[in-house]
Simulated scan of single mutants.
Amino acid sequence: MKVRKYAAIDIGSNAIRLLTHNVIEEEGKETLFRKSALVRLPIRLGEDVFKNGGISQRNEERLLSAMKAFKLLMEVHGVEKYMACATSAMREAQNGLEVIHNLYEASGVEIQLIDGKREASIIASTDLKKLIRKEESYLYIDVGGGSTEFTVFTEGKIKISQSFKIGTVRLLNDMVSEELWQELENWLKKNVKGLPNLSIIGSGGNINKLHKMSGRKEGESLSYIWLKAQYHFLTSLTYEERISELGLNPDRADVIIPATQIFVSSAKWIGAKKIHVPKIGLSDGIIKTLYQSDN
Rank of each mutant, 00 (worst) to 15 (best):
R4S: 07
K5D: 01
Y6S: 00
I9M: 10
D10C: 08
I11L: 15
I11E: 08
G12C: 11
N14P: 02
N14G: 14
I16A: 04
R17M: 02
L19W: 11
H21A: 11
V23D: 03
E25W: 02
G28S: 01
K29F: 04
T31A: 04
L32Q: 15
F33P: 14
K35C: 01
A37E: 07
A37I: 06
L38T: 11
L45K: 04
G46E: 02
E47C: 00
V49T: 05
I55K: 06
I55R: 08
S56M: 04
Q57T: 07
E60A: 04
E61L: 10
F70R: 04
F70D: 00
M74N: 10
V76H: 03
V79M: 05
E80R: 05
E80Q: 14
E80L: 14
Y82E: 13
M83R: 12
A84Y: 07
A86R: 08
N102T: 15
Y104H: 14
E105A: 15
A106D: 14
S107F: 07
G108D: 03
G108I: 06
Q112M: 10
L113C: 04
L113F: 12
I114W: 05
D115G: 15
K117G: 13
E119Q: 00
E119T: 06
A120F: 00
S121T: 02
A124Y: 05
A124V: 07
D127N: 06
L128W: 10
R133P: 03
K134A: 10
S137Q: 10
S137H: 09
Y138W: 09
Y138K: 03
L139P: 07
Y140R: 09
I141Y: 13
D142N: 02
G146P: 05
T148L: 02
T148D: 08
V152P: 00
F153D: 03
K157V: 08
K157G: 09
I158M: 08
I158R: 05
I160A: 08
K165M: 12
I166S: 01
V169C: 01
R170A: 15
L171F: 05
N173D: 08
M175E: 04
E179R: 14
L180A: 09
E185K: 15
L188E: 07
L188A: 09
V192S: 00
V192Y: 02
L195P: 00
N197H: 13
S199Y: 14
K212C: 08
R216G: 09
K217N: 13
E218F: 15
E218N: 06
Y224P: 00
Y231T: 13
Y231M: 05
L234P: 09
T235N: 03
L237H: 09
T238A: 08
T238C: 11
Y239L: 11
E240T: 15
R242P: 05
S244V: 13
E245S: 12
G247F: 10
G247R: 06
L248E: 00
D254I: 04
I256F: 12
I257H: 04
P258T: 12
A267R: 06
K268F: 11
W269L: 12
K274N: 13
I275V: 15
V277Q: 10
P278D: 06
P278V: 12
D284Y: 12
I286E: 03
T289G: 00
D294C: 05
N295S: 13
